[in-house]
Design a protein around this nucleic acid. Structure first.
Lengths: 388, 388
DNA sequence: GCGAGTATGTTGCTAACAGCAACTTATTAC
DNA sequence: GTAATAAGTTGCTGTTAGCAACATACTCGC
């Protein structure tokens, strides 16, 4: 006799098809509310193409679970005014950004607004667990003032290769290999945690609130203290690759027959080389006068030349509509504004390069922090189909 | 007075949400039937995770519209045997592949099987319209024998940049610019037509029936007579880029400070250089003995070295699980089997290169033809939501 | 050769979701 | 103060996929 069906009835339950439909609509609406700031309800129906009643149902669920709430309507024109919807401000995400000599901690709203931040020094050779413990102390402190805030998750931006399970497989500058950072953070904070590459985080932030908004096919290229990392978006979503490692563009060979230390892109376009020339620690821009020094100008131009060659290849391969330059690369672009765009248009294969728009990151050094928080915000529990 | 709602009722009609759901399921099932050849109905339910009754409804529609039909069940094990479903054989796609000196025409089944093919010479400077007219004659002839076959569309593989509307924006070897090839073909044949880059077509075919099947993140790199083209897949779908041009990897600069004719990948890894050395037209493999000639061996190894450097960069950027080499590159790989895979694993950033699998294309010279047909087959009218 | 076992397709039914149309509400314009 | 306009709400409908019971068709073992 087969086992009675009744005992199975209470089990897994998977009428998933319709749930996915609703989840997709929840995600679309929530994304609009988060990324476009406060937005009129009527605008939501227009943007999504969904019916007014559907928007009503979706918003009822989102506001019932406390993710969004409504202000009084701004009128502007005849007819009944549409209420303006915005994300709730009482839930926050903890963002952590470990670097070789520092640790940045921040409290970030679901809408990408940084509420509080603190950067502390980190002694070299601090262990991953040490970083997490330090971050825990700092964030507890930052949250102590504001008891009305509820942290809902932890996002970590790591300068290195992080797989889709939040395991740091290889972070050369930190000296980490095979570190289960996300699960360690879940233990320390008692909250869901995710980790990702720092450039990928920066790209997420620039897409949502910065220079890449409204672009569906773009490349974010970041010049950080640990080299050059990229993150590509195609059709509105990030190109992950088989393990989530896609984007390690700094190690692309661009000068194959040069000496061993002058072959890859990040060896030639190097903040460290520039710092040696300037004789100072480079933060985010050239100081007045520095660009007038001939040897600095020459190095800047040389690095721009190489960067243009590299970007030309990247454009040929990825066909982005926009390139967003972050960190050190942003400073290089600003040293000769617009030059890169022209060089790419002229050298990339016609008509791939024709429409490419080159911009500097809008969020500056905040991009990576905000993007780390976005790791959690883009996967809020509402969107998970409710089986939790 | 507002216009009465009743007049609007018969208009566009867009209850699209549920239609998209059904269309997605239709697409999944049809893709399984097309790509996995004849497949048991039970296997379809298991692969898709859909309910038996849903599969029943989907198959009823597909077979009602004449896209699939069922053989008698192959038993294999206890229980009621499951009918085997396969695509119908009476509908075919016309595939066209214009090259600088030749024109390939083929009749291809929906399941990717080549029914008939013919390659004719093309005089240089033949116009796009000339190519299409010639193809029309050849294909009419090929179809004359088989009156039971119904052509349903025309797919064209072009060595050049083709946008998503089927406009050839730039095909240097053919000398074409801004040619609305797909719409011209629709006029000539009276059938829906699509056009795409040849490497993109090859990748489609290798994914469906060749060396890239079962891989969701792979790169297909083709060495054709018009240089090196690539096509990247991420998460199971092709990376298109903003205009569908993504993949022009042959023009990547890899030797920045070399002479102008030795900078890009396809200048250094060049079939033409090899042909000059061999003193013959290179078709698809090295002849016995050729690789024993020292100067040939040296050139092969030199080109393999460069190719390894290039692939290393591509792996770092795209993080594929597999690389499929087609055309001339396939011959290079076979000249030193397995060497490229080792070189990439050793040189790519750990652990990006660790799991990369390097293979040669399975479909050989047929890949591009089959892929051209796949342009039509992947968008059969059943999938379009029925509003036509 | 015939029944037990088993896997499969089929049939009515249910739940969920989005879309629609009519109704209600809230503001602007005159 | 009334008409016009636009937006949220409500009840209903159509479609879809999932479920459970049933019917079917084969294999295996005696």
């Amino acid at each position: 006799m087969p086992e009675p069906a009744s005992t199975l009835a209470a089990e897994p339950r998977q009428p998933k098809a319709t749930e996915q439909l609703r989840a997709a609509n929840l995600a679309r609406v929530l994304e609009l509310v988060r990324h476009r700031g406060p937005i009129a309800r009527a605008a939501l129906t227009e943007e999504t193409g969904l019916n007014r009643s559907t928007i009503g149902a979706v918003l009822a669920q989102l506001s019932g679970e406390g993710w969004v709430s409504a202000l009084d309507g701004t009128a502007e024109g005849p007819g009944r005014p549409s209420p303006v919807v915005h994300v709730t401000t009482d839930r926050v995400i903890l963002a952590i950004s470990p670097e070789i000599d520092s640790l940045e901690c921040a409290v970030v709203g679901i809408g990408g607004d940084i509420r509080a931040r603190r950067v502390i020094d980190a002694e070299p050779s601090l262990s991953p667990q040490g970083y997490l413990n330090a971050a825990h102390r700092v964030l507890d402190d930052l949250l102590a003032d504001a008891s009305e805030l509820t942290p809902i998750g932890v996002g970590i931006a790591v300068p290195g290769l992080v797989d889709s399970d939040g395991v740091v497989r290889n972070a050369p500058h930190l000296g980490w290999r095979e570190v289960s950072l996300a699960s360690a953070a879940e233990s320390v904070f008692g909250l869901p945690a995710r980790a990702a590459n720092d450039a990928a985080c920066g790209a997420l932030a620039e897409r949502s609130w910065g220079a890449a908004s409204s672009a569906s096919d773009f490349v974010f290229v970041n010049g950080g203290s640990s080299g050059i990392g990229a993150s590509m978006f195609s059709g509105g979503s990030r190109i992950l690759g088989a393990n989530g490692f896609a984007g390690e563009w700094g190690h692309a060979v661009i000068n194959a027959r040069g000496p061993a230390h002058e072959q890859t892109l990040e060896q030639l376009v190097s903040k460290r080389r520039m710092e040696r020339l300037l004789g100072r620690h480079f933060v985010d821009r050239f100081e007045t006068g520095e660009l007038a020094r001939p040897e600095v100008r020459a190095e800047v131009d040389a690095q721009l030349d190489v960067l243009a060659l590299g970007l030309r290849s990247l454009v040929n391969v990825c066909n982005p509509e926009r390139i967003v330059l972050g960190g050190y690369l942003s400073a290089l672009e600003l040293a000769r504004p617009g030059w890169l765009a022209g060089a790419i248009r002229d050298s990339a294969l016609h008509p791939v390069g024709a429409g490419v728009d080159v911009r500097t990151a809008q969020l500056g050094t905040n991009a990576i922090t905000i993007g780390a928080a976005e790791l959690i915000a883009e996967r809020l529990p509402v969107l998970e189909g409710g089986h939790a």
